[in-house]
Nucleic acid binder design. Sequence first.
DNA 1: GGAATGTTGCAACTGATTCTCAATACAAGG
DNA 2: CCTTGTATTGAGAATCAGTTGCAACATTCC
Lengths: 152, 152
Amino acid sequence: MQDYEKIFKAFLAGKGLKLTMPRRYILEEVFRLHEHFNAEDLYAKVKLVTRDVSLATVYRTLPLLMEAGLVQHALRSSGRDRFEHIYGHPKHVHWLCRNCGAIQETDLQALMPVIKKQADAIRFKTDDIELSIRGICWKCALLENENHIEKE
Amino acid sequence: MQDYEKIFKAFLAGKGLKLTMPRRYILEEVFRLHEHFNAEDLYAKVKLVTRDVSLATVYRTLPLLMEAGLVQHALRSSGRDRFEHIYGHPKHVHWLCRNCGAIQETDLQALMPVIKKQADAIRFKTDDIELSIRGICWKCALLENENHIEKE
DNA sequence: GGAATGTTGCAACTGATTCTCAATACAAGG
DNA sequence: CCTTGTATTGAGAATCAGTTGCAACATTCC
Ligand SMILES: [Mn+2]
Ligand SMILES: [Mn+2]
Ligand SMILES: [Zn+2]
Ligand SMILES: [Zn+2]
């Protein structure tokens, strides 16, 4: 049994809940996926393995996984919430290109000392940190320049 | 005429658009408000001044104000987007208490050097930075402790 | 067995946001 | 003035991600 299964099982047990098959399928898929996904992406992936899971259960399980510290809300784009498994991964910054939609990641650790200092200053008990930056990725910036040159 | 009016007017002109009365009412209210607001909050406030504005126009004007650099998306909570006027304000971090919903702000400038360095490293052209941290504010943390004591 | 409690799929619902459309404003040119 | 083109608007309809009610099941505990 994987670590994340133990963690989820223990978390659920603590709330009088059980690691059922649908929940297990969803959990497995969450850790098989190494990209950012929204609820429907996840549902589609799980569907490839079994049909004993409904979209409603995906929506119901995601908050549990988040509360258990296994999944986090990564960012929101195009009107949808996107998630990622976080267990075993360092926290990171999301850079979203508003032209092509590509997402890049950088380290958040470098920012933690300042953030922690500020948290202490206002006596805030931090659960989640979400830093998303939107703009233009270098590829799209390149293309824009090329187009400008063509126009001239 | 306020600075922000000039800016918005110039921005609109650059796109072949005009600063109409509904847009002006909305703009005025945006800068009269000194809290975070969602579209409906803003609509309600504008309604107190005039009835010549519709909710649809509020929704249509917000993206223009954002593009003009006068308003920014502050954070999302309870399924709603919340905004704030940003012209003349330093960028800041939002600390959202997931118990009472209170929002505190701290300086983002302290984090900018690292963020800029990372942006350079991936050659990203930054437009917006949104750093939201959720957890428990000190007031709610206090109350929680009191309750624990009572229970014992 | 029977009660109590948690789980699920399904379909209906919700509600913030977006869109459609007909009416209106307004500028430019004749 | 009149005509034409373009931008604008309010009202209401539509969208659609996410939530919820509910009846059928599953499990555990007497
Ligand atoms: Mn990520
Ligand atoms: Mn703010
Ligand atoms: Zn891009
Ligand atoms: Zn609080």
